[in-house]
Nucleic acid binder design. Structure first.
Length: 875
RNA sequence: GCCGGGGUGGCGAAAUCGGUAGACGCAACGGACUUAAAAUCCGUUGGCCGUAAGGCCGUGCGGGUUCGAGUCCCGCCCCCGGUACCA
């Protein structure tokens, strides 16, 4: 141990020790029932670690250390989400092959991870782009195909024009590409789908199992995304044709108020319209308009055309017009609605614009008077209503159904429709099947062969993996580069041996990440994706940590995938993750100058800026170091290339050490909050590490001989008792904070304990045996509790305190607190008179209410406020 | 619009059950040490009034419950995230 704290030396030394002694390598051990699977979302190997990564993995790493110290067998693995777009972009731009590019990046990033000192079991490392991994993607695909869960169809799909590829609904949420933000277009393309909709009901119902363990907002987002809607299908006969138009409604009770049927512009029914040419033009226009990315919240003007067709309301027999409207969506429900202007806002707006009748058929329930039956002759309420009445109530002007409550009518009318053969109760979902075909090279090939004679033939399991070729032409044309590799495309049919062609699309990379954490438990298994026994021991994941941006992508897909794995007998549960933590972003100040073009900004890296602060510490101005001229101070933004406000973790490690960097990132804000990066903050945590280091340095000689048993230390002085109280109280707080992942307060508690140690009156070298015992107890607890945050320095200090073999190797355990010691034997009670703080008194913790009251009343200041008054009180 | 989460010092934040608001840290200011700087150590730091003792005010706004409200209830405002012609 040096006199001064040099993070670099310490960190290098312990990283080497950990690696050599396999400190974080674990095996399934059925004897050890206490096991813990701690997982963080695997990174895309972009080549560089950023602060978001550091935060993500520091959170998981701290928890892993905590559980290890508690005696758990902890699985904490790491791997690479190494298929994907950027590798292919690099190939297009710079001609480097995706595999080469990716593997270089992995090498570089792995070294960065090691430099952070994260406690991964590196023997279990996996990478999605290796055939040993992606063959199981292909295997799962074949299993889904067998079970009818994978199918191919032509459908309008989301197309990202910037990246020339198809996206799933989840990946184009909000009408923009999840990766690049480009407005998504619709294209008709034949592609493979997975029937995630078969699991819609389970995905909703099983949320009960993870409620409390997952953030409420993630569950809400998934619930909304699945979008379950209960209602009924109703068929309207179209006059003078054999066609029926089927609508979906959740408000069948309002059907007597339907004054039109409105269909989507490209609904098949419009072919029967006498105005079909106009309608086709209308459909074109609507289609073009919807391809433009819209501002969220911007409402599109409702437009429609009367098709000239008439439909029969099956309940009332009434003939109503059929319109085509831009507000009816092809992809939801049946692409057709019954328009009830009186009771639906959209229909109301549409009816007003096109002067359709508005007929009220639901009244608010009133206890004073029965609902008035409307005069059928004057039933148009266009004047009387100035907005739609969308609540449920009691039916009026609805034939035999009048007088019923909405809830009853909804049920009974659906049953009636079914018995009459013109409808049925139904549940629809917003969730669509998962389109997984990508016109990409850098992904797992879809294991399908097209034979002229046999048609679509799955690749036999024994022929897996379907290997990606080493090279291809990268043009960015929108067709898979695989199509241009004849030795890949041309093959023979597994059934008839005749000439055949391979599927050239690859799988969505979200398939890789849907089950990767099961591969960690058995990463080299050549026979199966993983061993069931091993899975039964390690999974489900106890704690998962990652960004919230995956709420309706990865986190939904992986729940679906797990349910499928359960159905084919690989696991015996349907929820892969018990607890989920979504960490906040790392944000930093931005600085910029006006660019050449009006309104454009040139962002300047914070490292190149000098800031001037006013006496309150607020930034008052900033100048560019290079030229001394002022720059504009912008808002805090997520660290990114585009805002040029990223901080390189490598530079932080060089300047402050991995320990201080990790400690700061966990201390500066609660894990779910955004974290404002301020370099001065990391100074504070470095200071804390230096203080604890120099304290141990000063005391280690004296502590070496200190008693390890409280009894041997004899009587404790008041100060030693107070220190022991602080120690045990801190252990209690920190332990509880770990359970709730409240790292910021855990670190604060450690800082407080260190402050107590600095305030402790005894000096190293002259302390009594009992003082030494109290200090030793405090320091050892402090060092062990520091290990999850700053493992290198904790190891160094643990060794300095006389322990051999490293923290985990020495058999150290998370400190236990003594409940009696954690409680104070004397408490300060604040005395309030009429709700105002008037004094403080110290009483023994065991004091009765009467004693406390007496003590309170004896206090001078309290007496001054209670003099001559009657007293009624509580404690 | 709807759903979810928030609003506490100059800043990040704390207050786990309705009981001392602002722990811990940053920044700032003052002091010690130093030829000097860095580092380190000590102190001050929500606002107002007061020489002081002390008092008053203070957790987005307005009400309410309570001996007592950052915390509970009612009504608003604002911010962040998600999402939408979803029938």
């Amino acid at each position: 141990m040096d006199e001064k704290y040099f993070p670099e030396q310490i960190e290098e030394r312990w990283q080497k020790t950990w690696e050599e002694s396999g400190t974080f390598e674990v095996e399934r051990d059925p004897e050890r029932e206490k096991r813990f699977y701690c997982l963080e979302m695997l990174p895309y190997p972009s080549g560089f670690l950023h602060m978001g990564h550091v935060r993500n993995y520091s959170i998981g790493d701290a928890l892993s250390w905590f559980r290890r110290l508690q005696g758990y067998n902890v699985l904490h693995p790491m791997g690479w989400d190494s298929f994907g777009q950027p590798a292919e972009q690099a190939a297009i731009k710079r001609g480097v092959m995706p595999r080469e590019w990716t593997e270089q990046n992995i090498t570089h990033m792995r070294a960065q991870f090691k430099r952070m000192g994260f406690s991964f079991d590196w023997r279990r490392e996996i990478a999605a782009h290796t055939p040993e991994y992606y063959q199981w993607d292909q295997w799962f695909f074949l299993k889904m195909l067998e079970r009818g869960l994978a199918y191919k169809k032509v459908s309008p799909v989301n197309w990202c024009p910037a990246e020339s590829t198809v996206l799933s609904n989840e990946q184009s949420s909000g009408g923009v590409c999840w990766r690049c933000g480009a407005a998504v277009e619709k294209r008709d393309i034949e592609q493979w789908f997975l029937r995630i909709t078969d699991y819609a009901e389970q995905l909703l119902a099983d949320m009960r199992e993870i409620e409390g363990g997952w953030p409420e907002r993630v569950l809400t987002m998934q619930r909304n995304w699945i979008g379950r809607s209960e209602g009924a299908y109703i068929d309207f006969q179209v006059k003078d044709t054999d066609e029926r138009v089927r609508v979906f409604t959740t408000r069948i009770d309002t059907i007597y108020g339907a004054t039109a049927v409105v269909v989507a512009p490209d609904h098949p029914l419009v072919e029967h319209s006498p105005l079909k040419d106009d309608l086709r033009r209308f459909a074109e226009r609507v289609r073009a308009a919807s391809a433009v990315a819209r501002e969220p919240g911007a409402e599109v003007e409702k437009e429609g055309i009367n098709t000239g067709l008439l439909a029969v309301n099956p309940f009332s027999g009434e003939l109503i017009p059929v319109w085509a409207g831009n507000y009816v969506l092809t992809e939801y429900g049946t692409g057709a609605v019954m328009s009830v202007p009186a009771h639906d806002e959209r229909d109301f707006e549409f009816a007003q614009k096109y002067s359709l009748p508005i007929r009220r058929v639901i009244e608010r329930i009133s206890h004073d008077q029965p609902p008035a039956e409307r005069d059928p002759e004057v039933e148009d309420q266009s004047v009387a209503m100035n907005e739609a009445f969308t609540e449920s109530g009691i039916l009026v002007s609805s034939g035999d159904w009048s007088g019923k409550l909405s809830a009853d009518a909804i049920r009974e009318m659906a049953e009636f429709a079914q018995s009459q053969g013109f409808g049925e109760g139904a549940v629809t979902y917003r969730l669509r099947d998962w389109g997984i075909s990508r016109q990409r090279f850098w992904g797992a090939p879809i294991p399908i062969i097209y034979c002229e004679r046999c048609g679509v033939v799955p690749v036999p399991e024994s022929d897996l993996p379907v290997l990606l070729p080493e090279r291809a032409e990268f043009t960015g044309s929108g067709q898979s580069p695989l199509a241009g590799v004849p030795e890949f495309v041309n093959t023979t049919c597994p059934k008839c041996d005749g000439p055949a062609r391979r599927e050239t699309d690859t799988m969505d990379t979200f398939i890789d990440s849907s089950w990767y954490f099961f591969r960690y438990i058995d990463p080299r298994n050549p026979e199966a994706p993983f061993d069931r026994e091993k899975a039964a021991y390690w999974t489900p994941v106890d704690q998962y940590v990652g960004g919230v941006e995956h709420a309706v992508m990865h986190l939904l897909y992986t729940r679906f995938w797990t349910k499928f794995m359960r159905d084919i007998g690989l696991v015996n549960f349907g929820e892969p993750v018990k607890r989920l933590m979504t960490q906040g972003m790392v944000v930093a100040e931005t600085f910029f100058r006006e660019g050449e073009d009006a309104g454009s900004k040139v962002y300047i890296n914070p490292a190149d800026v000098d800031v001037v602060r006013d006496e309150k510490g607020r930034i008052s101005s900033a100048t560019l170091v290079k030229d001394g001229q002022p720059v504009t101070v912008g808002p805090f933004e997520k660290m990114s290339k585009s805002s040029n406000n990223g901080v390189d973790p490598n530079e932080m490690i060089t300047a402050y050490g991995a320990d201080a960097t990790r400690l700061f990132i966990l201390f500066a804000a609660p894990v779910e909050n955004d974290l404002r990066w301020q370099e001065s903050g990391i100074d504070g945590t470095l200071r804390f590490l230096r203080r604890i280091y120099s304290f141990v340095y000063r005391w280690r000689g004296s502590l070496a001989g200190a008693a390890r048993e409280a009894g041997a230390a004899g009587e404790f002085s008041a100060e030693a008792r107070a220190l022991r109280h602080e120690t045990h109280r801190t252990i209690e707080r920190v332990t509880n904070d770990f359970e709730g992942l409240r790292y910021n307060t855990a670190v604060a508690a450690l800082m407080e304990l260190l402050n107590e140690l600095y305030d402790f009156k005894a000096q190293a070298g002259s302390a009594s045996a009992s003082d030494l015992f109290a200090v030793r107890e405090a320091v050892e607890a402090l060092v062990l509790m520091l290990a999850p945050f700053a493992p290198h320095v904790a190891e160094e200090l643990w060794e300095a305190l006389g322990h051999v073999g490293g923290i985990l190797g020495s058999g150290a355990r998370w400190p236990e607190f003594d409940r009696a010691l954690a409680r104070k034997d004397e408490v300060e009670i604040a005395v309030q008179v009429n709700g105002k703080l008037r004094g403080r008194v110290n009483v023994p913790a065991s004091a009765t209410e009467d004693e406390t009251r007496a003590a309170a009343l004896a206090d001078e200041r309290v007496r001054a406020w209670t003099e001559g008054k009657q007293i009624i009180k509580t404690v």
